[in-house]
Design a protein around this nucleic acid. Structure first.
Length: 589
RNA sequence: CGGGGCGUAGCGCAGCCUGGUAGCGCACCUGCUUUGGGAGCAGGGUGUCGGAGGUUCGAAUCCUCUCGCCCCGACCA
């Protein structure tokens, strides 16, 4: 093998520097900024990433990362990698193309659905593109680990995933192909797994703090990956796809799908003496229609939904102004699935078409939300076409089981304290799960414990959407002019802008400062294009590098250059000789 | 998968209803002027009007099919 030092490519730092040099000149860089917003972009991060020349779409939910985009993604990766390593995890790389056998072994080949992109090789064997890697890593570990002495283990990769999303959208925020950091931990004991869960929770907190993101860790549903409990890390942003409920007094925060609602404490009032009364409501089916027609507020109506479940047919009741939560219903009746009944079945159960169901006289199991318990003289469907009934009272006219089966809303009571829940929107950038033995059992990933007894390995898994994190940062940090990168994620540390490159003095000063900044170890973008000042300034604002050093004839005459911060817009003039030191101070500070 | 919309120059769009020379702005190329917040003048069109078929003397325009993209919904780490 050829010795390393004989190769100039490895040895000569000068040639590397020169190469780097060229990529940092705006005039040489593939950095196609756009004045106009592409018509198919609909969230601000996607618009700005397109306009700032970071990404270009290749197909629905599939993107090219241009140099500027890749630099930002690499910054996120760098932080994630450092913190994962510091937390004791080891980096590996698994294949993107995975043989079907592994997925069949875990059972997910049939369970996962059409989001799993399947393909065949030339021998007609089945493969899939990995949307997540529990199977592969479990296979990897079961082949190598025999003893409790080799545990615990935390292995991670930063790799491209493919999920054939029904509806990709929002650029890098919900692509089909996307870069993800996924980590998997393996343990001999529950305590060890819990400890690692906590370790990852803290690591994630450090990662997102280092990314300068405003986020909350919230309790979450475990979803299709399975497992016992989990937290999502949510970046707070208007455009977030998830709604989260957070307490204004304590640290309680949960995905609204999951958020518990404190039971109302209103004491049951005097029983009503009003008799049930039937009213005709021709063709009024929805809560809105009935509410408007009968001039009763939605909160005075009881919504009755008929569900098919593996525990039989169930009528689920919520107050008219609330939404039923299917997952809560599922848990409340301890079902393995629930499904809204179709029209024919509703007619069978209630004797009326959809829109006129009510609890009174129903022969099926009735589960009512806690909000129904205190309702008095409510209106419901009459189980008869074009009719509703008034003055319905739970306990008197029907006797349901009570449970928390609705979505939390703004103003609900916190389940943990006396505080009030507020609803915010969030972008899920990270997720930590405790998996348990779901995969190790299915795939026989076992180890021998101290007593020589074979036991399934206990697992955890921990994901971070890398591109999504970069996009989330833009959602949270931008203004009308463009991106405002926080220093840790910025593609460059600073940008040098010579106002007029045709002026020899300006160019010389800019080149000198540029060279010095690079020698100081900064990533510097030099806008050496022969463009008008306005064009360069607009692009600088759009690209959003934290510090801009502007060099122009006017100030140069006084021996001065200008430093401008992208965030906040603070601008100051410094002596030319001090510019580099000031810039370094700002970047490192 | 259901509902709606859009495919015309690199980007943003008009033209289509009522068939007859392919157009506007930006970008791009050349020249001159200009040079601290997206310059001005002059010249230049870089196009399979998404694709296929049909109607017609003639199709960007009308009809059929098809592909792609976007939005709303259902779904979802």
């Amino acid at each position: 093998m050829k010795s390393r030092s004989s190769s100039p490519a490895f040895f000569c730092t000068h040639s590397q520097k020169k190469y780097k040099d060229d990529t940092m000149r705006f005039s040489r860089m593939l950095l196609p900024t756009l004045k106009e917003t592409p018509s198919d972009a609909d969230v601000v991060s996607q618009k700005l990433m397109m306009r700032a020349g970071m990404i270009r779409k290749v197909a629905a939910g599939i993107y090219n990362l241009l140099p500027m985009g890749l630099r930002a993604v690499r910054k996120v990766e760098g932080i994630v990698r450092e913190e994962m390593n510091r937390a004791g995890a080891q980096e590996v790389m698994m294949p993107m193309v995975v043989p079907s056998e592994l997925w069949k072994e875990s059972g997910r080949w049939d369970e996962y659905g059409r989001e799993l992109l399947r393909l065949k090789d030339r021998h007609d064997r089945d493969f899939c593109l990995g949307p997540t890697h529990e199977e592969v890593i479990t296979d990897m570990v079961r082949r190598e680990v025999r003893s409790y002495r080799e545990l615990p283990l935390n292995l991670y990769q930063i790799q491209t995933k493919f999920r054939d999303e029904i509806r990709p959208r929002f650029g890098l925020m919900r692509g089909r192909e996307f870069v993800m950091k996924d980590a998997y931990s393996f343990h001999a004991t529950d305590e060890s797994a819990d400890k690692e869960y906590q370790n990852m929770y803290e690591t994630y907190t450090r990662i997102f703090e280092r990314c300068s993101l405003e986020f909350r860790a919230v309790e979450a549903e475990t979803g299709a990956i399975g497992g016992r409990f989990s937290h999502e890390f949510m970046v707070l942003a208007e455009t977030g796809e998830d709604a989260i409920a957070a307490c204004d007094k304590c640290s309680y925060a949960a995905n609204v799908e999951r958020a518990e609602v404190r039971a109302p404490e209103t004491a049951p009032g005097a029983p009503s003496d009003k008799k049930i009364e039937k009213v005709m409501t021709p063709n009024k089916r929805t809560i809105e229609e009935v509410s408007a027609y009968l001039k009763i507020k939605p909160s005075g109506l009881i919504k009755t939904l008929i569900y098919e479940t593996d525990k039989g047919t169930v009528a689920a009741l919520v107050r008219g102004d609330f939404d039923l939560n299917e997952m809560k219903l599922n848990r409340a009746i301890d079902a393995s699935w629930v499904k809204l009944a179709d029209e024919a079945r509703v007619k069978e159960v209630t004797g009326a078409p959809v829109g006129f169901a009510g609890p009174v006289g129903l022969k099926v199991r009735i589960v009512a939300d806690l909000s129904v318990r205190s309702m008095k003289d409510a209106a419901t469907g009459a189980n008869e076409v074009d009719a509703h009934i008034l003055n319905v009272n739970p306990g008197r006219d029907f006797t349901p089981e009570y449970a928390d089966i609705r979505n939390a809303v703004e103003g609900d009571g916190c389940p943990r304290c006396r505080g009030t829940l507020t609803i915010k929107r969030g972008i899920e950038v990270g997720h930590v799960f405790k998996l348990g033995t779901k995969y190790s059992k299915a795939m026989s990933a076992n180890f021998l414990d101290e007593e020589g007894k074979e036991r399934p390995i206990i697992m955890g898994c921990y994901g971070i959407g890398i591109g999504r994190t970069a996009a989330a940062s833009i959602e949270q940090n931008h203004d009308d002019f463009g991106i405002i990168w926080p220093k840790p994620l910025s593609p460059f540390d600073c940008e040098v802008v010579p106002v007029n490159v045709k002026d020899a003095g300006t160019t010389a000063a800019a080149e000198a400062i540029y060279a010095e900044l690079k020698d100081a170890g900064l990533d510097v973008l030099l806008d050496d294009r022969d463009e008008r000042a306005g064009v360069k300034f607009k692009d600088a604002d759009l690209i959003g590098i934290p510090l801009r050093i502007t060099i122009g004839e006017r100030n140069l005459k006084e021996g001065l250059v200008e430093l401008k911060e992208r965030k906040g817009g603070a601008m100051r003039l410094v002596k030319k000789e001090e510019a580099v030191a000031e810039a370094v101070k700002f970047v490192r500070g």
